[in-house]
Design a protein around this nucleic acid. Structure first.
Length: 100
DNA sequence: CGGCTGGCGTCGT
DNA sequence: TACGACGCCAGCC
């Protein structure tokens, strides 16, 4: 797992509670121009679903995106961390967004 | 607002 | 080892 995964997890760990990031930003943060999809795949098969706050990662459109445990759970977690969500979309998305 | 195409890494065959 | 398909997207049409 000594590849992008490591970097991705590292970067993702930087995101504080109450804030979120996008797959695109995360991808760039690890050195990829347009590797959002690659990141998504990594997240999907991520070996550490617990130590990795993948629920803090959303789509650039403001929507939640996918989640292995289900969008409902993801929504719950984010809401619990302070990120309000309505209609499957982030409230004040741009505002809650964390810049690396 | 909905649908289609693009671009990147990992996994499976 | 090599090739093709897939995925928790993004952006343009």
């Amino acid at each position: 797992m000594n590849t992008l995964e490591k970097k991705i997890y590292k970067k993702l760990a930087e995101v504080p509670k109450g804030q979120i990031t996008t797959y695109g930003e995360l991808a760039k943060a690890v050195g990829l121009k347009n590797g959002q999809r690659a990141v998504g795949r990594i997240m999907n098969k991520n070996p550490y679903p617990v130590i990795i706050p993948c629920h803090r990662v959303v789509m650039s459109t403001g929507k939640l995106g996918g989640f292995d445990y289900g969008p409902d759970v993801k929504t719950k977690m984010l809401t619990d961390e302070g990120v309000k969500i309505q209609g499957g979309k982030i409230v004040d998305f741009e505002n809650k967004l964390y810049r690396f």
